[in-house]
Design a protein around this nucleic acid. Sequence first.
DNA 1: ATTTGATATCTTAGTAACTAAGAGAATTAG
DNA 2: CTAATTCTCTTAGTTACTAAGATATCAAAT
Lengths: 173, 173
Amino acid sequence: MSRTKSRETLLQELEEAMRRSSAQGVMYGQAVANIAGIAQSDMECMDILFLEGRVTAGRLAEVTGLTTGAITGVVDRLEKAGYVRRERDASDRRKVFISVVVEKAEEIGKFYVPMQAAMQKVWGGYNDEELRLLLRFANDGYKGVLEATEALKGVIETPPAKRASLKMKPPIR
Amino acid sequence: MSRTKSRETLLQELEEAMRRSSAQGVMYGQAVANIAGIAQSDMECMDILFLEGRVTAGRLAEVTGLTTGAITGVVDRLEKAGYVRRERDASDRRKVFISVVVEKAEEIGKFYVPMQAAMQKVWGGYNDEELRLLLRFANDGYKGVLEATEALKGVIETPPAKRASLKMKPPIR
DNA sequence: ATTTGATATCTTAGTAACTAAGAGAATTAG
DNA sequence: CTAATTCTCTTAGTTACTAAGATATCAAAT
């Protein structure tokens, strides 16, 4: 056993570690949705609302990849539960803006406290220079995943019998 | 604007970048499932099968958080599509082992090629020492998410009206 | 002003995948 | 040998989704 790992070993371990932690992250999100008693799509929409602020129903459909009909259902549930409000746009009365009811939404936010605490603890183990490297990596990684998502469209050559329409979700923003 | 970011700014940006890239990663997985024409739960089970090899139906239920009934459906679909095989355990004939049909499963694997390529490209921009830091971080991060998942159970004090039974998914392995 | 076409959301009907509960078969404990 | 336990599957009912189209509004052309 060599004391310093070969680059190949490093890359393998890195891939596995990334895969594991991201899988576990997904599970955390599922657990939060379960506890909060709302569907995962609903939670995803809440996330988007927090990131983007006030968005239209159509934009939610676009970003989540759901149909507008499905979004109607999502917003119905969230509105009934008090997490969001529908507001018709005054200048274009076809549009419906969805906005977060902050006080109510904070009830969900508290389920993310354990995650934030854990992450702060982790980040506490790194100095500023190391954090800069991690930030660079996170940004590079994001760009990489975007590229991969784009390249994925190119993999489709021989459409099998029943193929979904491949309505791919655009990245947020 | 200071040339070097404050630690606070770094942490904020890091959180956002991580969130973004992990969200986009989830979307990539959804896109692959769509293209392959199988449900996301089915895809998740395939992932587990690749990681763990031969697993029982019950283990799949445990790890995915689905009921055993749901797993029956998942395996039915995957088996029908030729991705997996059911094999009764000879020593305990109640058990059903699920195993991947490798040749067929490779058809799915090819949808991950763009992602692997993108990640290799990203990792190419880092030297061994930097990769070691990233590996350390990925492992710390995994541990952090596990802790957070555990701590999440503690957040439940005042059970609201209708609360899911909080059947939380255990980490893989 | 009216018509035509485009846009934004919602409605309806049908489908797929889930849960809860329990049945059936095999195993283990007393 | 019987009873309790374990493991998967079945059944009935629910939920959230899609596809298609209805409804309402806006924008453009004449």
